[in-house]
């Protein structure tokens, strides 16, 4: 039973990917043992029986436990509305900030105001209600400094790499602190603006192409380029 695509090929919605006992991951649907692509994506043949579809464009859909970087867009009486680069606006409830209900009504904009960037985790999401965020974890909270890099959400996994190899390499090589949000927003904090810009450049370049076979190799190449020229 054949595979109907070649490695790295662009497939359009409705294209037949494979027929038979295959494992197709990514946005696809099946009719019997036939697998079809759902969205415009790149087909990657990982093993002889395993095919992965990487969407070219896709909005971010929250998933419980994801680290996201959001922007406060509204302050309510007991909550903040946070834009997480998704069709669903997230809610951060005040109970996530204060351990128990406070009797004195405090103005919430004294804590986070409109326009603040936050690192948070998705606590709960099931499509019937807007996603809830939490900050009850270390290293979550308002982002005070750094450079915001935006990449397409389907390519975030490339920036992280297998077991975080890619992002760890970048941290070490460029001596910067990187927070990767699953929603395609990445914060780079470095000691100097130059380092931040170099890291941002490497991340941007890494996410330019639809598919990179070995992100770690690619990032090493890009980083050496940046370091070789002595920063920006």
């Amino acid at each position: 039973m054949p595979i109907h695509v070649s490695n790295g090929q662009i497939v359009i919605p409705g294209d037949l990917i494979a027929e038979g006992n295959y494992e197709v991951s990514g946005p696809c649907f099946s009719r019997g043992k036939k697998f079809y692509s759902k969205v415009l994506s790149v087909a990657v043949i990982e093993k002889s029986k395993k095919i992965r579809l990487i969407p070219v464009k896709r909005c971010y859909i929250p998933s419980e436990g994801d680290l996201v970087i959001g922007k406060v867009i509204d302050v309510g009486p007991t909550y903040w509305l946070v834009d997480i680069n998704s069709p669903y606006t997230a809610i951060l409830q005040v109970s996530e900030i204060f351990p128990r209900p406070t009797s004195h009504q405090k103005d919430l904009s004294s804590i986070f105001k409109v326009g603040d960037l936050l690192a948070a985790k998705v606590l709960l999401f099931d499509f019937t209600h807007d996603p809830l965020l939490t900050m009850k974890e270390s290293r979550l909270g308002r982002i005070e400094k750094g450079l915001l890099v935006e990449v397409p959400p389907p390519r975030v996994s490339r920036v992280i790499g297998k077991k975080g190899q890619v992002v760890n390499y970048l941290r070490e090589a460029l001596n910067v602190e990187i927070t990767v949000g699953r929603n395609g927003r990445i914060i780079v904090i470095g000691k100097e603006a130059d380092l931040e810009a170099s890291a941002a450049y490497v991340i941007k370049r890494l996410c330019e192409e639809h598919y990179v076979a070995d992100p770690l190799e690619e990032v090493k190449k890009l980083a050496s380029l940046v370091l070789g020229s002595g920063g920006v």
């Binding site: 662009i10 415009l40 810009a197 330019e208 639809h210 020229s229």
Partner: peptide, 24 residues
């Protein structure tokens, strides 16, 4: 039309001189 759009995506060669403009 769809395939052409995504196969012609700009993949310029990186040259050390070029990138100073892009991200500075």
């Amino acid at each position: 039309a769809l395939k052409e759009r995504y196969s012609k995506l700009p993949i310029e060669e990186v040259e050390s001189g070029e990138f100073s403009e892009g991200v500075a």
